[in-house]
Design a protein around this nucleic acid. Structure first.
Lengths: 189, 189
DNA sequence: AAGAAAAATTAAGCTGGTTTAAGAAAGTTA
DNA sequence: TAACTTTCTTAAACCAGCTTAATTTTTCTT
């Protein structure tokens, strides 16, 4: 089924019946997108939370000089949106788009709240997801402060070698906070 | 009562009885600390989650050159720990210490889980807390990529003028990712 | 209130990483 | 398989922000 990735993921966090999982899954829309499709536009109201079943999404923004800067990648089993904008139903700070052809589940803010009201056990699921994600984001802030740009790349390549193969180099540079030119120079060494 | 700050904070997120709040509060230890007291040591197991009733805490690490780098401040009504280390019961990546004389509530990992089991409604509370905190951490990563060090300081000063007054300048520099010398130079302009 | 310690300032020299610009390689389309 | 587009590489000039080190100011301790 097209929503198996999500229900399997939930099962790793909760003890829950198949019947409930089916009902929970029904809150989500399933859709496939070709690569480089924009799902959320910056400045537009952010009313969707995404779960990646297959493929890869990114959130990015355009800096003062017009260069896109990647904030987050989301691959299989990751959640992605502009979380602040989503919860406040404000305009998004980020563009969200597919990096690869992708299968994506989405839920609107009102459906998300309905889901949490009807299945309070999902509070536990999202609490766990956000707890980890928040901890990881703070670790990223630590890394940004600790490592030089060169070290950032080398560490990342050692930690996620398959992912480095998977995304274009200019996106990786953007995510790691250096220029494609400098990344290219580092690789030469 | 010494735990009012917490119970009041919970009330802003949940509809809940006073009796339950009293029971929930009983899971926490209340303690006061003088400024510059270390509550968690890096490399030691992280088994406490803190809620700041009064005062200010920071989490920081020591970089390769021996300089402390502040990752997070926590003032009244903020939660603080090394969230990844806490949930995995691993050694902390950060030192956590008081910046001011502070009143702090704390809970161990096992008590935290007991609390969530006995009062599932607290899943909703923490889900909301972490959802916001995660969103904010990603916005910080955006800011780090967007702004020059000078802009970082000016933006922060405009957004949190009272906080800039409140903490020593060298800690602010550390948090914003620049040297005290450079911050001093920026202020002169 | 004096002395010690911690924090903030100033200034000069230096460097990691950016900018710019052009060409090479790889991928896509017809 | 040629033409077009996107991505990657190379190299030189440049600069935001760091390092170092000495001085001054503020805060803490007794």
């Amino acid at each position: 089924m097209t929503k198996n990735a999500l229900t399997n993921h939930i099962k790793t966090y909760l003890v829950i019946s198949e019947e409930e999982l089916i009902e929970i899954a029904s809150f989500f829309d399933y859709q496939t997108y070709r690569k480089k499709t924009t799902l959320i536009f910056a400045k537009k109201r952010c009313d969707q939370l995404f779960f990646v079943s297959k493929g890869c999404l990114q959130s990015y923004f355009i800096d003062n000089l017009g260069n896109p800067k990647t904030i987050q990648f989301a691959i299989e089993n990751w959640w992605l949106t502009d979380f602040l904008a989503f919860q406040n139903q404000k305009q998004s700070n980020f563009n969200i788009e597919t990096v690869e052809n992708s299968e994506v589940l989405s839920i609107s803010f009102s459906k998300y709240n309905e889901l949490l009201t009807k299945f309070p056990v999902m509070e536990k699921y999202f609490r766990a997801i956000y707890q980890t994600a928040y901890g990881s984001a703070l670790m990223r802030l630590k890394h940004v402060n600790t490592f030089s740009k060169e070290e950032m790349f080398l560490k990342f390549r050692d930690s996620y070698p398959e992912f480095v193969q998977r995304v274009p180099q200019y996106l990786l540079a953007s995510f790691l906070g250096l220029t494609p030119e400098y990344l290219s120079e580092i690789k030469r060494k």
